[in-house]
């Protein structure tokens, strides 16, 4: 849409700026809060940054927030990253392979397999949490990275996305690859996966965030503090019973917890946008 009226341009920008501000404001407040002393923050949320930035972040990062009732921040960030990466990569791997099987192979019970996968869509962790816990406990996977991530991997959410995408890949490409001597796995590796690159990037971002934001499941399967995730940590810090939460440190942690997802989004966004601009085929 090309509008040449300056008034419209101004209005459009105003609306966009307002919208952006609406989303950024809470984050700004959190950041501001993380730059003041605990006492200042508990008197009411300040609107402008204070001078405690280095001190607060130093505290959070170095001797941990043990004082605030959680394990060291670095460990929690690491745990969250491991879990989110495992979930994102695991889900993508499973979805790619199952979509490949469903679209390109004729095997017995193919339709049944398809519907079974479909049904897993209706069973997110929250629904199957008790039986899943039972299984994970039985397998001795409580308090482990495997326990944190595998149950969340085990649903083929993205299979449909890839199935849909694979079905748009022209049959002639498959034929050409067969004539060029590419077996199924070579075709998958050399042609399908590279062609799915933009889908992969988008999905990776979504799944990484999904993993990062998991709360209920990690809470259930970890009793050992060394497996706590950052989201759990923040919750622990904000919920300290009788005591007053140390809001400035909580906010600093929250800001730090935002960073890895932001990094993932920004780095993937480049690929994602490039993929959108350069239309393949």
């Amino acid at each position: 849409m090309v509008e040449r009226r300056p008034v419209m341009t101004v209005v459009q920008h105003l609306v966009l700026i307002l919208g952006a501000a609406l989303f950024v404001f809470p984050i700004y407040l959190a950041f501001v809060a993380s730059t003041h002393t605990g006492v200042e923050v508990s008197r009411g949320l300040p609107l402008f940054p204070g001078d405690q930035l280095v001190t607060n972040y130093g505290t959070v990062l170095s001797d941990g927030i043990a004082s605030a009732g959680a394990p060291p921040l670095g460990l929690m960030l690491f745990n969250s990253t491991v879990m989110s990466l495992a979930i994102a990569i695991g889900k993508i791997a499973i979805s790619l392979l199952s979509a490949f099987a469903i679209v390109y192979f004729r095997f017995p019970f193919r339709i049944l397999a398809f519907w079974t996968i479909f049904i897993t869509l209706m069973l997110p962790v929250e629904v199957r949490i008790l039986p899943t816990y039972e299984v994970v406990a039985g397998l001795g996977m409580l308090n482990s990275y495997a326990g944190l991530s595998i149950p969340l991997i085990a649903s083929a959410t993205a299979t449909f996305l890839f199935r849909q995408f694979f079905m748009t890949v022209p049959d002639e490409l498959t034929d050409a690859a067969r004539i060029d001597g590419a077996g199924p796995l070579k075709f998958f590796r050399d042609i399908l996966v590279p062609l799915s690159r933009t889908n992969l990037a988008a999905l990776f971002v979504i799944l990484f965030l999904y993993g990062w934001n998991q709360y209920l499941w990690p809470l259930l399967v970890t009793t050992d503090e060394s497996y706590y995730t950052i989201v759990m940590g923040i919750q622990r810090m904000a919920n300290v019973g009788e005591q007053q939460p140390v809001w400035n440190l909580v906010m600093a942690t929250a800001i730090l917890a935002l960073l890895p997802p932001v990094v993932v989004i920004l780095s993937m966004q480049r690929l994602f946008v490039r993929g959108l601009i350069e239309v393949e085929k």
Binding site: E172, D175, R178, I179
Partner: peptide, 18 residues
């Protein structure tokens, strides 16, 4: 197909886009 020592040209060319 790969063992038949043939090559084929398709209507829509079927080039690998990437």
């Amino acid at each position: 197909p790969a063992e038949r020592d043939i090559a084929m040209v398709f209507q829509n060319y079927a080039l690998y886009p990437h």
